[in-house]
């Protein structure tokens, strides 16, 4: 085989591998998007016919999850069991995720700064914090349920916010600590000599340098909270169901799992993380500390 042919074979092989990987990863997305727009008749193959793309495009699934009817207002539908509304669960999810993320960021970032700059807690504290993550959530969630009931936090938004913050706190500490470690300690000292208070030095001199890290951490933690199913399932009841829990319960007596409605809600749930990533994209760039000090 000539060198050129070899190289060509290599390229083809590589492209093949890329294509195969893409198929594996994109298939669920494809499934989700197409399913969200399929009418009920096309959810499953009928008479051996598979609907790779929706034959009759419809927004019915979206209408259905927001309290309407899948077949339009006029049409009578045997599908409708009980009207459902995903709006409240989505809002619940937003509040709990954003609140939990914000709380974890505030506490975690301060903790990380203390550890990185002042050696707070010695060598042990960072590992103790990491230890919190050693237990799988399922192992501790039942005791937490009792605790939350006792504290009257069960099935409340503050209860979710607190547990989300607690669970993601170690991530924030460990991520932010490594970002703070990269900021030369003289930056803080220069700010203090320049007249800043300790808090002012943190806010005006150090924090701007870890913006990128903070944005990355925020996105990471938000996605963790946003996609939580287990904790919300245990710690909430009807009142503050989050979107993932709500999604799992969309089913009707007539059809069993409502694939179309679930896909529609799934599609909506993808939007916030994607939007957030786009919003903070320019902060996700590293190298903000470049030029601070001589190397």
């Amino acid at each position: 085989m000539s060198a050129l042919a070899k190289r060509r074979a290599g390229v083809i092989l590589r492209l093949g591998a890329v294509a195969a990987t893409l198929v594996v990863f994109l298939f669920p997305v494809y499934w989700l998007v197409t399913m969200a727009f399929k009418p009920q008749q096309e959810w499953a193959p009928t008479e051996g016919q598979i609907f790779w793309l929706p034959h009759d495009w419809t927004f019915g699934n979206f209408r259905r999850i927001f309290g309407g009817s899948a077949t339009g207002d006029s049409g009578l539908s045997f599908l409708i069991s009980t009207p459902i509304d995903a709006l409240t669960p989505i809002l619940n999810s937003l509040v709990a995720s954003v609140g939990g993320t914000a709380l974890a960021l505030v506490i975690g970032t301060s903790t990380a700064y203390g550890i990185s700059r002042f050696g707070a807690g010695g060598k042990v504290l960072p590992f103790q914090i990491l230890q919190l993550r050693m237990f799988p959530p399922i192992a501790i969630i039942i005791p937490v349920l009792f605790l939350w009931t006792y504290l009257k936090l069960f099935d409340t938004l503050p209860g979710l916010v607190i547990i989300y913050a607690a669970i993601t706190f170690p991530f924030v500490v460990w991520l932010m600590r490594s970002f703070f470690d990269e900021v030369p300690r003289e930056i803080r000292e220069a700010a203090i000599v320049d007249g800043c208070s300790e808090l002012g030095a943190f806010r005006k001199a150090v924090l701007p340098l870890v913006r990128g890290g903070l944005a990355t951490t925020a996105l990471f933690v938000f996605i963790l909270n946003w996609s939580d199913f287990l904790i919300a399932l245990v710690l909430t009841s009807q009142r503050v169901h989050t979107a993932p829990v709500f999604l799992s319960q969309i089913q009707s007596a007539a059809t069993g799992q409502e694939y179309g409605s679930q896909a529609a809600l799934g599609l909506i749930l993808i939007i916030p993380p994607v939007l957030l990533s786009i919003l903070i994209q320019r902060h996700l760039v590293r190298g903000l500390t470049f030029g601070a000090v001589k190397r």
């Binding site: 030369p184 003289e186 930056i187 000292e189 220069a190 700010a191 203090i192 000599v193 320049d194 007249g195 800043c196 001199a205 701007p208 340098l209 913006r211 903000l288 500390t289 470049f290 030029g291 601070a292 000090v293 001589k294």
Partner: peptide, 20 residues
């Protein structure tokens, strides 16, 4: 506190504020 001493220091690594 350093700020109350009316002293300025130039650090070995300069410690400029890179974002400003």
């Amino acid at each position: 506190a350093p700020a109350a001493r009316d002293i300025a220091i130039v650090f070995q690594n300069l410690a400029l504020y890179p974002d400003k």
